[in-house]
Nucleic acid binder design. Structure first.
Lengths: 359, 359
DNA sequence: TCTAAAAATGTAAACGTTTGCATTTTTGTT
DNA sequence: AACAAAAATGCAAACGTTTACATTTTTAGA
């Protein structure tokens, strides 16, 4: 029988070899080199205990030799799991979101997950588009910020059967699981603190409540707490602004130009508080002598303002870590998503004191 | 012939239908409903101009009716493109990295890309692991921070043929493309500024140069600039610390406890500068009367310290945007990655002045 | 040594798109 | 009306894994 092999198994594709430094190896080549089937390679890689030590070693050797790079996309395709978590936050620039993001990322990373990041810029519309894209990439879970979302987003998550978790806002009424502190309660404690110092005329600077339900909670607490103490809620002392120090400064400025300025101001976030504080000092006002200021978040920098800022410490890191942990537990062990309420703490530093003149 | 159909085509899987609100539709069902082939659906979705308007409309209608969610994983599988960019930064908590990250994210988002985020915590080892995971997820490109990387990482990127870009550090010597300002030059300008004010004894606080080549550049510039002016480089006035305000404060404290304290200090990042500034004021020293301080980065908060911090403005946003743009252009139009040098600017504010006593 | 059970491995069918090529339909020119 | 060219659509083969299920090998007990 003459040696006629009309169809050689695998013609070495010269062109391709020339292009890339090395042709990317697939599991198939690894299998061939190790003298096993692809199934065994897959097992050696994913569930090492399922293959004999000797075989495993042979496979690993082949992996090294071929410079094999696992294809997670192909794996996700069939296993229906991407080991990926979507995270949507309103902004990274505010370092308080950076803190929780860092923790989520850290926890996910440690568990072998990578996070897909989206920034919604406080727009539910943009958020929905973003989420759509994350869903298309088949994230195993989605971590959102706040409770203000486009209806279509919620539907899409349900359709895709993707679990989601809310951070930065406690979802009591709805059946959405959330990992957060209580914005209302925390803000209340801040206002209560000012009132307990003897302040009777209070001002508020907060985020835009139309796009930020955390700001809304905090404003609500401010108003309710004043009412509870029989104090006036003067609209001229309430400012909704963007998260910029400059905005805090200008809000404070407006307040001070008011016929009857407040003796204390609650800034519902530290960014604005820093601006407000700066504005007071710019005008030569003594803080807390002439006016008290309390912030919210406890950014690291608040220990370094002069005077040091009284504020409400928010468990940003814990929140991120817990959220990621709960999400991953849900993904891996089908543990239903559980809500968690975290606690805040009022950090009394140097920008608060009783008002100079008691009525 | 009796009607015996032993194998009905698609037995409705009751259990699944019960589980999920709706069974997820595939392109196949959309195609069937629209009365076209899957190829046409794919085209209608990806290259609308390639299908007749009428057909397109029919497909889109079917998409809506079936609540079809595109499977980007399956698409990536075959198209070899993931529309995904990997980004690895040392930390998010330092808001200067948050700024460039935000811009990268924003630009990518606008171009239809999703960013996969990794945080290396200044460890090349961890970074390599992280990158491996991103590569496994088949990112179309990788944006890294600085030039200090594990050899295995570089190899892997080459093996996978994934383009990468360095930010925050100009890669002159190596052939790696980078989008950055020149750390050395920028730091030099800061030190030069202090010297030009008349300072002769200078201190330095910077990041850990063993894990951070940006800090190394800046330190090098500090030392070289002093030497150039014939000034002493006193090791007792050089502090390498982590990026914490507290670290800046303690470094400054140590410097002030020195027999011959400096009249000016260059803090190679604003975080440490804020701590240093705070420490001076804590001790009742006048800044810039007794001591000058210059920072680096121009974080927003530096306009709100008292006195306002003199610093070097760094084009974090531009850098992020340009990096993302260049990466995407490279991915989509095979434009080779080009390096870009951005400029910095010295922002003279209130923490710098000539030394009180000239020699 | 034999045998049953357990462990290891192999076979092959998915997974849901994209895309080269073939075929059909439409358009435009004469 | 006929025809060529262009546009639209369809066919079917990938892409690189995972995973039931089947088969083979090993282990252990008698």
């Amino acid at each position: 029988m003459p040696p006629t092999r009309s169809k050689p198994e695998k013609p070495p594709d010269q062109s391709k070899v020339a292009d890339a430094a090395r042709v990317k190896a697939t599991i198939r080549e690894v299998a061939h080199r190790a003298g096993v089937s692809t199934a065994t390679v897959s097992r050696a890689l994913n569930r090492p205990e399922k293959v004999r030590a000797e075989t495993r070693e042979r496979v690993l050797q082949a992996v090294r030799e071929t410079h094999f790079v696992f294809d997670g996309i192909a794996a996700s395709m069939i296993s229906r799991r991407s080991r990926t978590i979507g995270l949507i936050i309103p902004t990274i620039t505010n370092s308080i979101y950076a803190a929780s993001t860092q923790s989520i990322q850290h926890t996910a990373q440690a568990a072998g997950y990578t996070v897909l990041l989206g920034v919604s810029e406080f727009s539910p519309r943009l958020e929905a588009d973003l989420a759509q894209r994350l869903l298309e990439r088949r994230v195993d879970g989605l971590i959102l910020t706040g409770g203000n979302h486009d209806q279509s987003l919620i539907e899409k998550m349900r359709t895709n059967g993707v679990p989601f978790l809310i951070t930065w806002k406690l979802m009591r009424g709805k059946d959405w699981p959330s990992v957060s502190f209580d914005n209302y309660k925390a803000a209340w404690s801040a206002v209560e603190f000012l009132v307990s110092l003897g302040h009777r005329r209070l001002g508020l600077v907060c985020g835009r409540t139309d796009v930020n339900d955390r700001a809304l909670d905090r404003r609500q607490a401010f108003e309710d707490c004043l009412e509870r103490h029989g104090l006036a809620v003067d609209p001229v002392l309430i400012y909704e602004r963007d998260f910029e120090m400059e905005e805090g400064a200008s809000a404070m400025s407006a307040m001070l130009d008011t016929p009857e300025p407040p003796t204390a101001v609650f800034c519902a976030n530290d960014i604005q508080a820093i601006g407000a504080l700066s504005q007071c000092r710019e005008r030569g006002l003594s803080v807390p002598g002439d006016i008290s200021i309390i912030g919210f978040d406890d950014l690291p920098v608040t220990s370094y303002t002069r005077p040091k800022l009284t504020t409400v410490r928010v468990p940003a890191h814990d929140m991120g870590r817990r959220a990621a942990e709960i999400m991953i537990a849900s993904i891996e062990r089908q543990i239903p998503l559980q809500s968690v309420e975290l606690q805040t703490e009022l950090i009394a530093r140097e920008t608060t004191a009783p008002p100079r003149f008691r009525r």
